[in-house]
Each structure stands twice: as structure tokens, then as C-alpha cells.
């Protein structure tokens, strides 16, 4: 259900950078820990994008796996289930998220009129 708010956040971020140029692709990096459902995000993005430079844009979502790091034993591993405990150190481990929290607009692709003069 948070995909609607997240879609608005994406569109606002893109609009800020697109400078009124029509956007064709939005490349998004989504961490597995963000609990985003890709199809739902895509659906809401299409709605929120209406009337903005994103109206014709495709949303490309790159899923970043959730990886944890233990400061106790320096082990790094990937998780599918939300278990933030080091398999070696147990509850004594100092577990941090190494990747998987991302929700970032990595880049946008846009159409622009051929440049007439260097800027």
C-alpha cells in the first residue's frame, strides 16, 4: 500500500531533475528490505505520472538483494527472510544492513531537442 506514496516521491524527484524535458525511462534501485511490490509500484507510477514529464516514462526497477554484515565476525551474507541475527555470533553479533535499504532514482533517460549550442 505504500507504493502510492513512494510513486509520488519518485515522480517528484524526477521532475526536479528533468527540467521540463519529457522522460522516457526512470531507472530505480529498490532494496529488498523496502518491501516494495514491483507490479504495484509500476501501477501507481503510471497514475501519479499523468500530467508530468514522466507521463510516457517506463519505470525500470533494479532489485537490490538484502545483505547483512556482522561487525563481530566480519561475515557478510544475503537474507530472504527478515532475520537480522548473525548465524555465527547469534544475538551477540553486531548486525548492520550492508545493502537492501535503497530506494533511489539512479538515473533518467530523456528526449531532448538536438543541442544547438554548447551549454
Amino acid at each position: 500500500m505504500h507504493e502510492l506514496s513512494l510513486s509520488s516521491a519518485i515522480v517528484n524527484t524526477v521532475v526536479k531533475h528533468a527540467q521540463d524535458r519529457p522522460v522516457t525511462v526512470v531507472n530505480l534501485r529498490v532494496g529488498a528490505l523496502r518491501q516494495v511490490i514491483p507490479d504495484t509500484l509500476d501501477f501507481y507510477f503510471g497514475i501519479v505520472a499523468k500530467g508530468t514529464v514522466c507521463e510516457e516514462a517506463r519505470l525500470d526497477q533494479e532489485l537490490i538483494p538484502a545483505r547483512l554484515h556482522c561487525g563481530g565476525c566480519e561475515r557478510e551474507w544475503e537474507i530472504d527472510l527478515p532475520v537480522f541475527i548473525c548465524p555465527d555470533c547469534g544475538v551477540a553479533g553486531r548486525v548492520e544492513v550492508a545493502s537492501g535499504s535503497e530506494f533511489e532514482v539512479e538515473s533518467i533517460e530523456l528526449e531532448e531537442a538536438a543541442c544547438t549550442a554548447p551549454r
Partner: peptide, 17 residues
């Protein structure tokens, strides 16, 4: 028209933060 790719790398929730 030609296509340009613009690197952004910005958390989408930065504006809120």
C-alpha cells in the same frame, strides 16, 4: 530529438527527509 541519460542517484524520499 536525441536521447540523453542523466545520472541522479538520489533517495526518492530525500525531499521528505
Amino acid at each position: 530529438m536525441h536521447r540523453t541519460k542523466v545520472k541522479i542517484v538520489e533517495e526518492a524520499l530525500d525531499a521528505n527527509n
